[in-house]
């Protein structure tokens, strides 16, 4: 059983790319996630919407840390402890919805 994960690239009206993830992110599918994040980042500002993510572990966090200085995260309260504890919340802009 592989970990369920759906990744969708969207753009905000201002053209900012938004990566929408849905499902769980762990070691088994982090490669897919990392590729999607890298692609979406392009070289500018990056928004990742984790609202529908139930699980995020350190492998997923590592993919996000690579772009922390220009990352804006939209995350559910469930993930708040992980983001805070890992220190990502200090580097990136995090919106808890």
């Amino acid at each position: 059983m592989t970990t369920p994960l759906t990744l969708t690239d969207q753009r905000r009206p201002d053209g900012t790319p938004v990566l929408v993830a849905e499902g769980e992110i762990d070691m088994s599918n982090v490669g897919e996630f990392r590729a999607a994040v890298d692609r979406a980042a392009g070289g500018g500002r990056l928004v990742v919407d984790l609202t529908a993510v139930d699980y995020l572990d350190s492998a997923g966090l590592a993919a996000l840390f690579a772009h922390a200085d220009r990352l804006e995260l939209i995350a559910p309260p469930l993930l708040d402890p992980v983001l805070t504890v890992s220190g990502l919340a200090d580097l990136a802009t995090v919106h808890i919805t």
């Binding site: 059983m1 592989t2 970990t3 369920p4 769980e24 762990d26 070691m27 088994s28 699980y55």
Partner: peptide, 10 residues
């Protein structure tokens, strides 16, 4: 195997 993780979590 990492593929087992989701099942274990479940």
């Amino acid at each position: 195997e990492s593929a087992q993780l989701a099942r274990v979590r479940g």
